[in-house]
Write a protein that binds this DNA or RNA. Structure first.
Lengths: 229, 229
DNA sequence: CGGCATCCGGGAAGATACTG
DNA sequence: CAGTATCTTCCCGGATGCCG
């Protein structure tokens, strides 16, 4: 006898709640479970399939991903779209409101890079890298750049357009960009955030532009330890 | 590689990690555990003691609060300050970096108020209410107001200063403010966010100002349900 | 292969009782 | 008041297996 399936996170009514009118507390009820926000991050550049999500979330297990997808769908943050047969494959995409969660991801990321425990040299998904560019882009340094930068990252392609001190990034064919980076997201992060030499990367096109691009994303300083105010 | 031993939550090194260079993922390692961010919220207006924290976090149990405080201290987000004997009482306060987490709380709160599941009529701590004012203040509506608003909320006192389209809120003696609200935070929230009549509140001083004040914090519209793009 | 259900072990959260 | 100790419950993670 199936006893209501224990309402594994999908049911907001019986879920563990905070009983707090604070909006922040409610946000944590919606996306505070483990992995939930990272699932949203992976969907920030467009729909993905189950296995694509798993690939971008190192260590998540299939059943937990299923639970998070159920919960996020019940909360109207994502929606599942069934592609037409014969390729009757399901894909998951953010709702409009789900896309509005982008500042949450950015603010958290910007704050956490000041942590002494943050290590930018670990594995990184393509979506993470692209999101980090949106987050850390320095408008002052990028003010005079007008260019398109392409990325080919294990099959996924992105294009960043820099103009008027802003950066816009979309999932899109990289061919035709002024410069194209190819390879693992981690290797590119090592250059942009870890100071590794540009020569370690596979770069096609305007190499001087590539060099300037990698300097557009300064990390904030680490916190001072041992301050005993 | 398996994780050895329990290391009850306080040890960031052996804690459950995401193994992801993404700053957002690291932020979740730091403050993603249940209650952690709400503890930070409670400390946003200054140091508090253990029992004061419990009072503002309905439903947290003492051992969990202890674990969160240990973890947040190990992560350099909070610090414990021992007051001098004979009142050798401990208090917890945010570090400078901990205070920098305020945008996280605000962005989450603003986003979640659009959720159909958000109910502003639930219990609310004083810190939550004050933080919600900082978060939802409408600069346009408040542009022409220049005033100080006092609050007496179960013993805690706050003052909000509105000037030049900005609002600043501090824990401070409410006496001398142009208008003073007294009572339960929930009752004030019912007026500001729930449309309850001002007459349900204990208001001293400039009553017209009080009425204008309660209209300065519009909630964003709820999301459209059933959109089937 | 993609998605989901089920079982299991370990660990985190919740509730209560207890101590300095 | 400020936690600790203990017990229970639930969630997370891994493995397996079913079904289209």
């Amino acid at each position: 006898m199936k006893l209501e399936k224990a309402t594994n996170g999908a049911d907001t009514a019986t879920k563990r709640r905070f009983y707090d009118a604070c909006g922040t507390a409610h946000a944590l009820e919606l996306i505070g479970e483990r992995w939930a926000l990272l699932v949203i991050r992976e969907l920030m550049f467009g729909p993905k399939r189950f296995s694509e999500l798993r690939a971008g979330l190192p260590g998540i297990s299939a059943n937990v991903l299923t639970q998070r997808l159920e919960g996020l769908e019940a909360a109207h943050i994502i929606r599942r779209r069934k592609l037409p047969p014969p390729a009757s494959v399901q894909a998951y995409e953010l709702t409009d409101w789900g896309y509005e969660a982008e500042p949450i991801i950015q603010v958290l990321g910007r704050w956490a890079t000041r942590s002494p425990g943050h290590d930018p040299m670990q594995p990184l998904s393509a979506a993470s890298l692209m999101m980090s560019f949106r987050t850390m882009f320095d408008a002052v340094r990028g003010k005079w750049i007008n260019a398109t930068i392409g990325f080919r990252l294990n099959g996924e392609e992105f294009v960043a357009r820099i103009a008027n001190g802003k950066i816009a990034i979309k999932r899109e064919d990289a061919a035709g960009a002024d410069v194209i980076f190819a390879g693992q997201p981690t290797a590119i992060a090592a250059v942009v955030y870890g100071g590794a030499p540009l020569e370690t990367l596979d770069v096609k096109g305007d190499r001087a532009l590539a060099a300037r691009f990698t300097g557009l994303f300064p990390l904030p300083p680490k916190i001072e330890l041992g301050q005993q105010v």
